[in-house]
Design a protein around this nucleic acid. Sequence first.
DNA 1: ATATCTATTTATCACTCGATAAAGACCGGC
DNA 2: GCCGGTCTTTATCGAGTGATAAATAGATAT
Lengths: 215, 215
Amino acid sequence: MPSAREPKTDPKKRKRLSSAERREEFIAKAIEFFAQEGFESSTRELARRLGVTQPLLYRYFPSKEDLIAEVYKVVYVNRWRDEWDAMIADRSQPIRERMTAFYHSYTDVVFRADWMRIFLFSGLKGVDINQRYLRRVRERILDPIVRECRFEAGFPDLTPSAAEIEYAWVLHGGIYYYGVRRLIYESAELDNKSFVIESSLDAFLMEIAKLRGPG
Amino acid sequence: MPSAREPKTDPKKRKRLSSAERREEFIAKAIEFFAQEGFESSTRELARRLGVTQPLLYRYFPSKEDLIAEVYKVVYVNRWRDEWDAMIADRSQPIRERMTAFYHSYTDVVFRADWMRIFLFSGLKGVDINQRYLRRVRERILDPIVRECRFEAGFPDLTPSAAEIEYAWVLHGGIYYYGVRRLIYESAELDNKSFVIESSLDAFLMEIAKLRGPG
DNA sequence: ATATCTATTTATCACTCGATAAAGACCGGC
DNA sequence: GCCGGTCTTTATCGAGTGATAAATAGATAT
């Protein structure tokens, strides 16, 4: 079927590509499926939605567990954008602008039903991938943000304090929870991501400035 | 067994109580069990942990679904504290004090692994109980809080705006997400609930004051 | 002590699950 | 045309699922 659709190329490559594409098709559908139904749902139902029989899945993945591992990998690893580092570190812009731009980009990625539901499902299953992900958020987002705030405030020591990191987590959590309310519980008051980002940022920057002011 | 432990009472009452107690024992263990393992886990494993056989569960609950409904009821309905209304409404105290006290009490209830995990599990299963719960939070917590803030600021009209409610959600979400990080992902930096509550409140009150200031 | 009623267990059904093996279908090269 | 290899399906296994009916144990009342 795919060879009929596609223009002719090197036979070997075409075949391999077709196989790889089918595999990717399976993974893509698995993401959608498991995000909707949870990881305890059956491979038979997934196969049904793919329009293939269930044993075919085992031609591409040794076990259901391996398929799920692929799902994690694509959602968590492949959707992470390396340019976020640069966005936060770009000192030609004030930190507020950088954070605004970053959180718009970040929420474009994570404010998606499949991302959020898979994150929640895997977190409840106790998969270590969640803790690894949060560590990554801490190290590559929150930590740099606090350091840039310190830099902009003229501090010689950029090392974040535990309190500053906790402020950053409250900021991050407030924004994230807005996504949860919208995409999981469908109960957000405002359909306005920008408003939430801007006001959360306001609050964070005020808090973190106050931390320095009186002390 | 229970009759041996207990002092003698009216036989009929004792018997009924014993039966009711066993039922409650089942529900209590079911909360713990489903919170840990998810609602897709088997009734056989639950029975094993209770030290009884699996068909006995069906003497007390017509189906697994009914047992789960009982779990929801106990966790969501029975743990809600009616005194929260009065805590928020008590105008003999400044709103900041009231909110601090309320959020300490509220997090005492919801910052528990069983509560959080069952909330997340049921939310992912699309059970309407989550949306009902969030509506209740909105109506009996956030709405009153914003109204009290308006009252304290001397506003004649206490009706909350959508923006104010969204601020309140960000506050609530930031605090809640701290609980999630601690109890679900076990990755909170500070083991200090008070700090998170106080600083989140600071941020919220500053934001909501700013909303009135320039406008 | 025995009959009665309830709590509990044993045995089992029909179904679904993940996974495997074997048979069939399809496509390229010759 | 046929042949060899890959993709896909059919058939099936063993284990586990929610649920039910019948058998048993254990207490209560007389």
